[in-house]
């Protein structure tokens, strides 16, 4: 565990633990692809296009995990003022955004394959699209340089409200669309056999490790961004003091 905490020797965010995880992931994904495309048989109603499921469902889980971390992190920032959680929230939001994009793209293609349309305005799709927009808004706010404590508090309020807003939109659309059609269009129930089920759960495992790997790198990146900004701020303050003719506190006069 300590190897996770030690800064890497090289000029990069990689370290021994991430290299080990990375190698495991490459092997893991190779096996997943084999299972998803070769080992498992085609499904009864959907044929081969059901294989999107092995990508789509774990992606949804990772996206939700990211959102959860962002929410918890935002809460901790407001409650304890924790820098660690502030950085984690940002890293998690980035991962969540990437995987929400994957969910939307894969879901859209799967929709084309099974229903013939790329998009329907049902509760699940609409709230996923809203989640994407809300995450992009959060990331847009976090890109802005500003006084760290105040900015991280505002970003935390924003982050905390992401999931509640998605829930509000979800229910709005559910009640709205239920007048016109079934509330959520369900896919034809896939006939799942044992190997398919195993592949799905194995997919969760691989994507879970993938999430951890991305979070380790992401945390380090966000932390370094903080350092860079703090250093930049110190320089700016020193310059300002120099202009005013005041000797900086730590300097030898």
């Amino acid at each position: 565990m300590t190897s996770l905490l030690n800064p890497p020797a090289t000029s990069a965010t990689a370290s021994r633990s991430t290299r080990i995880l990375g190698l495991l992931l490459i092997v893991g994904f190779a096996l997943l692809l084999y299972l998803a495309f070769v080992a498992t048989p085609p499904e009864q109603t959907q044929g081969d296009s059901y294989r999107i499921l092995y990508l789509h469902v774990p992606s949804v889980t990772v996206a939700y995990l990211g959102c959860l971390l962002t929410t918890v992190g935002s809460l901790m920032v407001l409650w304890k003022g924790s820098d660690w959680w502030d950085v984690t929230a940002l890293a998690a939001a980035r991962v969540a955004a990437a995987f929400t994009a994957v969910v939307l793209v894969s879901g859209s293609i799967w929709g084309r394959a099974t229903w013939g349309v790329y998009w329907v305005w049902d509760a699940r799709l609409t709230s996923t699209a809203m989640l994407m927009v809300l995450l992009l808004g959060y990331l847009a706010l976090r890109r802005l340089p500003a006084d760290p404590p105040a900015q991280s508090r505002r970003a935390a309020v924003l982050g905390l409200l992401i999931i509640p807003n998605v829930i509000l939109v979800h229910y709005s659309v559910t009640w709205w669309r239920s007048v016109h059609q079934g509330s959520t269009i369900t896919r034809p129930d896939a006939q799942i056999d044992n190997l398919m089920l195993f592949t799905l759960f194995y997919g969760f495992l691989v994507f879970g490790v993938f999430f951890v790997w991305l979070m380790i790198h992401g945390f380090r990146i966000a932390w370094l961004e903080r350092q860079v900004e703090a250093v930049g701020l110190e320089h700016a303050i020193a310059e300002r003091r120099a202009e005013a003719g005041v000797v900086a506190p730590g300097a030898v006069g």
């Binding site: 809203m130 808004g137 847009a140 706010l141 802005l144 409200l161 807003n165 939109v169 709005s172």
Partner: peptide, 17 residues
């Protein structure tokens, strides 16, 4: 530019209702 991006998705449930 940021405020509309942050605010309008939040107001979607009001629009619907």
């Amino acid at each position: 530019t940021l405020l509309p991006l942050l605010l309008l998705p939040v107001l979607a449930p009001v629009l619907i209702g």
